[in-house]
Amino acid sequence: MAAPGRSSRGDVRSFIKWAGGKTRYAAQLVAAAPPFTGRYWEPFMGSAAVFFELSPAKAVLSDANPELVACFQAVAAQPEAVMARLDAMANTPENFALVRRQNPAELDAVERAARVIYLNKTAFRGLWRVNRRGLFNTPYGAYDRPYYRRETLLEASRALAEVDVRLCDFADALREAEAGDWVFLDPPYLPEGGFADFKRYTSGQFRNDDHERLAAAMHAASARGVLLTMTNSDTDATRAIYAGFRTTRMATRRDINLRAAARASFDLVLTNY
């Protein structure tokens, strides 16, 4: 029998990887999840690794990145069409440059989703990075690997079938969450230096005042009985901005860091339970 708040879908994984995503730690985070009776929320969706690990019965996934949201929506609705489109996309520097220049507004839903997955699998380290005009600018990664695994994408599509996937600001999600819901938050981290400072996966940046805004929204949701978990960098600034929440440290790796010695680190896990 599934645990409270969870379905019985079994082992499901994300079909993409995302810089800062929690694929490696999803099982650990789910194991430490609070008992909850309402909906599961993930306002910084990314690869939605914790969602797929948890397999909640009711969920709302959201993000401020319109391409990511459009991709998840299309995978949920038209997985076969997305895979067929990917099969027609060559993994070459020339085609990568062509796809990177495409205007998503000129693509249909399937083409738009395939573009996200293709760039995620072929760009350098899978990094989704855009400039201030919203144009994707990560270089080609020259990786010889499949764009997708059929069963993984189909299982993900089934898991997403009844999920509310939205384009919205985190504050809107936190404002709507109710007592008994569990919200897992994995925002762009407060700066530690180097690659850890990356935060441009939309045309705007996630700045310190956004963290202040997030902390205020979390406190307001907590006062209503919403259960909260957030991961962030282990810094004095994080502890100061998010004062009032319980903190524990989680050993992690920074695979996006080019220096192997700099990859080992710790994250903070902040909760109100």
Rank of each mutant, 00 (worst) to 15 (best):
S47V: 08
R150T: 15
R224N: 04
R253G: 01
F124T: 00
G126R: 12
A221W: 10
A216H: 05
D236Q: 13
F52V: 00
D255E: 15
Y118E: 13
F36R: 01
F245W: 05
C168H: 04
Y143M: 07
N95L: 14
A81F: 04
L29M: 08
N208R: 12
E212Q: 05
R200K: 13
A221D: 08
M250K: 06
P93N: 03
S203Y: 02
K22F: 05
T92A: 05
R175L: 15
V75W: 02
N208C: 04
V50A: 10
T122A: 07
N131E: 05
G204T: 06
A26T: 05
Y273Q: 13
R6A: 14
A260C: 02
L185T: 02
P139K: 02
N137S: 09
S62Y: 05
V12N: 03
G180S: 08
T252Q: 12
M1S: 07
A260Y: 04
G46F: 13
A81C: 06
Q73H: 06
L174E: 07
Y140I: 10
W41E: 10
V30C: 12
F36H: 12
Y143L: 13
R132D: 04
D169K: 01
E53H: 02
L268D: 04
E176M: 07
I256C: 11
D181L: 14
W41N: 04
Q205S: 12
I256F: 14
E155V: 03
S14H: 02
I241R: 01
A161I: 09
A48G: 09
R200W: 09
F96Y: 15
